[in-house]
Design a protein around this nucleic acid. Structure first.
Lengths: 239, 239
DNA sequence: CGCTCATTTGAGGAACTTCAAGGTCAGTGG
DNA sequence: CCACTGACCTTGAAGTTCCTCAAATGAGCG
């Protein structure tokens, strides 16, 4: 867990350049909500953005009123909590295509950009009333929520395992979520990963080294690029 | 974490005596769904039970198809997972009034009675189509899900703290969920609590002893009855 | 009373954290 | 081009927490 002095800048930059126009956002949206034109129009009336954030920008603070759901267009968004003793825990990472923010009525975590990221804000009340009229929307919302719940429960299970297993599981899971590319480019900092896994960065680093030495993974040239070499072995470490 | 030999009897007793009639179930239901008579009739057409389970009975196995949502009428229900190395983790406890079971499409945990318990089964598909017609039902479902999600996220935060903090938080949280009675009668076994907190029963026991010695709590005569004496001190231990 | 099961206590060892130092890399200015 | 800087990651050594194994104690029940 990080100490408070690692904490992110408490600065909301709502005026970042909009990289995507609404067309780009709609394309991302279509993957989730389908491509019904009239539905898309209704949805785009509810949305605000996309808004761009730089790494470590705060998107919404703990205790804020949760009026908007968030839809990640690019980058990685983290939800985290700083406790009184100054340690930080990362509750979840959200990748492009993820829809989240169901807290009622206030946030219990703060929402921050783990990398440079673009986020769409969708008025919660509007989406809810739309869902009561359109079953497709309701199903998307239900799916998003149950998916997030399933992920949270997996996270709980992970946290009662040892560090090696947590790291192996995290890397494999991230590799799957990012589309099983040849290389795994870990997009967030090791500090973020460590705070997500409930270990120190030193323990994280040591366990990556151990797994590298036993031939399960290897570090490749750019900053945080890994090659998962022995998936069978990784699964064994994951239990 | 428990070893496999502590595991629950893999035996489903669907023929236990029905203790409550439908009237009793309806009363519990009304607290959640309101007391509209016609809505109650529609709901009772979807429900099955209440079914009684003895402690440690399996209600539904991991990997089962999740056709039904569960509504706890009495007792405590736990969801848990046994991993390959034989250790068990408890993901969540559900108390009377809790509605849960949103896994899609298969369960990823098994559902078991942590104490003798009565459970109502509600056809998922029926409840969903009812929700698309009745906003009240939809809201109840949304509230149940977001509530469960919030609880899961709290659990994640808990798991990255030390053992003392986890135990204190668990006891306080349980005391609140059970209605802040004078005494806290912990309904589930220490093994269940330990597996929920990701510590051994020995660590759990030692930390209860330590908190008792420092005057935060005290053990009272019946089996697992505690008195939370110093709520301020407890909050301090919880961070 | 004597059985069983659940819980508590103790001692030793493993895993993880803490503290401290060293290394790597990209950006910056001489 | 090269040294300097700061952010980030890695490594080492010492200390703490928690787990494991083992035994004792306590509670409920025939």
């Amino acid at each position: 867990m990080t100490k408070l002095d690692y904490c992110t800048t408490p600065f909301v930059d709502f005026n970042c350049t909009k990289i995507f126009g609404t067309a780009g956002a709609a394309a991302h949206f279509a993957k989730v909500f389908g491509d019904d034109a009239s539905l898309q129009r209704t949805l785009s009336a509810l949305q605000r953005g996309p808004v761009s954030f730089y790494r470590d920008n705060v998107i919404a603070l703990d205790e804020d009123i949760a009026d908007y759901l968030l839809f990640v267009i690019s980058g990685v968004v983290r939800t985290c909590k700083i406790c009184k003793n100054g340690t930080r825990s990362v509750v979840s990472f959200y990748l492009p295509g993820d829809l989240f923010g169901w807290a009622e009525p206030k946030l219990s975590v703060s929402i921050e950009a783990a990398t440079d990221a673009e986020v769409l804000f969708i008025k919660r009340s509007g989406l809810l009333s739309l869902a009561s009229r359109d079953v497709r929307v309701a199903n998307v919302l239900l799916a998003a929520t149950t998916n997030e719940l399933a992920r949270a429960q997996e996270h709980i299970l992970l946290m009662s395992k040892n560090a090696r297993c947590r790291v192996a599981s995290f890397l494999t899971d991230l590799w799957v979520r990012l589309g099983k590319a040849k290389y795994l480019d870990v997009p967030m900092s090791h500090q973020d990963v460590a705070d997500y896994l409930g270990v120190t960065i030193e323990t994280l680093s040591r366990n990556i080294t151990i797994m590298e030495r036993s031939g399960l993974i290897s570090r490749v040239s750019p900053r945080r690029r890994l090659l998962l070499q022995n998936h069978f072995g990784l699964r064994h470490v994951m239990n």
